[in-house]
Nucleic acid binder design. Sequence first.
RNA 1: GCUCCCGUAGCUCAGUUGGAUAGAGCGUUCGCCUCCUAAGCGAAAGGUCGCAGGUUCAAUUCCCGCCGGGAGCACCA
Length: 678
Amino acid sequence: MNLLKIQETLRQTVVETARKEFNIELETVASEVPPKTELGDAAFPVAFELAKRIKQQTGEKSNPRQIAERLKAALEANESVERVEVAGAGYLNVFFDRAKFLIESQNVEVLPCLSESENRAAPKVCVEHTSVNPNKAAHIGHVRNSVLGDTFVRILRANGKRVEVQNYIDNTGVQVADVVVGFVYLENKTLEEIKNLHARLTAEGKTFDYFCWDLYAKVGQEYQKNETLKARRAEVLHLIEAGGNPTAELADYVATRNVECILATMERFGIRYDLLPRESEILHLHFWKKAFEKMRERGVIKLETTGKSAGCWVMPTDSHTGTEEHEADKILVRSNGTVTYTGKDIAYQMWKLGLLDLDFYYNPFHEYADGKLVWITTAENLQSANIPDFGGSETVYNVIDSRQSYPQEVVKKGVATIFPEKGEAASVHLAYEMVALSPGAAQELGFEISEADKQKPFIEMSGRKGLGVKADDLINRLEANALTEVNNREASRLEKNPGEESLSEHKKIEIAHRIAVGALRYFLLKFTRNTVIVFDFKEALSFEGETGVFCQYSAVRANSIFRKLGEQVSGSGFQVSDLEAISAIFNAEDGDGIWSMVILASRLEEIIANALNAGEPAILAKYTFNLAKAFNLFYYNHKIIGEENQTKRAVLIAVADLARRSLTAALNTLGIEVPERM
RNA sequence: GCUCCCGUAGCUCAGUUGGAUAGAGCGUUCGCCUCCUAAGCGAAAGGUCGCAGGUUCAAUUCCCGCCGGGAGCACCA
């Protein structure tokens, strides 16, 4: 009997009692977490609702407290409940049987869904995230996208969902064209020479995406003063889209090397993908043509014959009202017959949902260290073996910057209009605000800031200007800082305990890496999605206070207790006959403190369900921090190893074990691993 | 002009579908390593929840109107 099940049973009891006693049918029963342990473990403010409903139904005024009293007995009949109190104006505060709960918690998985083997028959959901244009290195804003997406994937899996992770590669867009213009017209390089450059950079320990980062910024500057160069962009873009020519080949080489770099960067953060769908295949396999046919069949688009958009195929929208400057309807096909970005996106979304009747071909792109493959789409059938069943998801989550809210709305509405049977709920835009730079941070990076920008609260990062904190730079800095700390702490540990074994260099690097990832992932996850993160070096590099490192430290301390206790304690559960002795521990003066640790650690499953429903990983991040904080307090207040009362010692061990299991699972769901030592 | 987001402690942010004394971190001040790791723990100080109305037994939360900040509204991607 875990916490969720107890709460569900109690809710049912409330519904049944309301039906029996008051002849009222409650659809939902709200339950709350009381603000303090002394106020119980679950609270139902249902008596207020019932009083209102009784008045509506019979016209009789009733006292919420009296209603609560009548529900009280029914709730107390539950075997997990010790007692129920009616508090305040009519709150029902439920107190669990603490000893019984603790005994049962020992045999309960903190995340039951994860322990089950993946159900291949379960409906699949798709998460698209990262989707960095393959023309430069990823910056911290891209990492916010990837970390949010990856964490959401982990939350879905912890809720028992089958998930497919896609990273869309826009390899035929203007951004790639810009870097190609740079290579060809500024650097005067052929494909062979670019290949040599790549080899040289690799040999020097440098990365191709960093080179492109600078080149892209250089091209952006050149465009401002060189109109001929700007004209080249259109030519190059056209050649890339057409395919089958040397420029397209060169662009493909550049884009693919950048994709490799970005994958390597994200792997450092523990972020992986199943499939890389490319825009080139969406074009070459005529996904749009198929989508267009379906839209015409279903009559959701029309050809404008008059007005500003004459000659364009448009999709009428009602969510937006037109003005003199802007048409209300969304153009999907331009008057020259080419398709817009939104049009392509609708086709891609249709494929994701299994509504297109067309498919890509697939080829393995990259193999992770443990053998897992990332696949990439291809335009030709390369006869690959064991291709997973991609696409055709029940629900699609697109992790995209909130600046894309309008086009995402069009895609969602568009797909829902073509397929009303599928509906809008199948397309979810997980929008998030940008990561911006404070004027100070921008200056710290060595950028000239205009007087106007200095007045602004924050400055938007820009790949085109080369203005941003590169992901690898930041994680390198974090790892270096962490390694310094690890070395210092290791030295003082060995000084105090000369007999202890020292950590190998390899292990120290691994610990520093985990700390760095923990710090950065938590930093990006503690903000809710619709908060603009104004990047601040001091805050991002911090290892103290509300940080991932704090949470990791708490888990490391917990593990350290069990290391000292040795293996003999694991699996030594209580006997049911111990119930009274355990109750005595909880009823003692410091019993509430011990119990609050138990109940908080038991909420993980509920919190993860909340995080999924709200589409908000920050809920889990905040919980994890609070859990770590609670454990640090518990750790300080109760000295487990030195405890002389054997029952109390056993209780404390069980509580600490529950806390560390919950904390570890919470951190892992955030994509943060617990280091061996800290 | 229209749409969306934000405004909570000195700073950065949480605050579930309305609910009990509005929370955390940083910063400031003061305590705590003879005791399972001080990347820690405790305490103090700090609030007209942007302003003004409305709905309700109950509003930081829902509705309306202002004020201030941000983003979007392309035959760009």
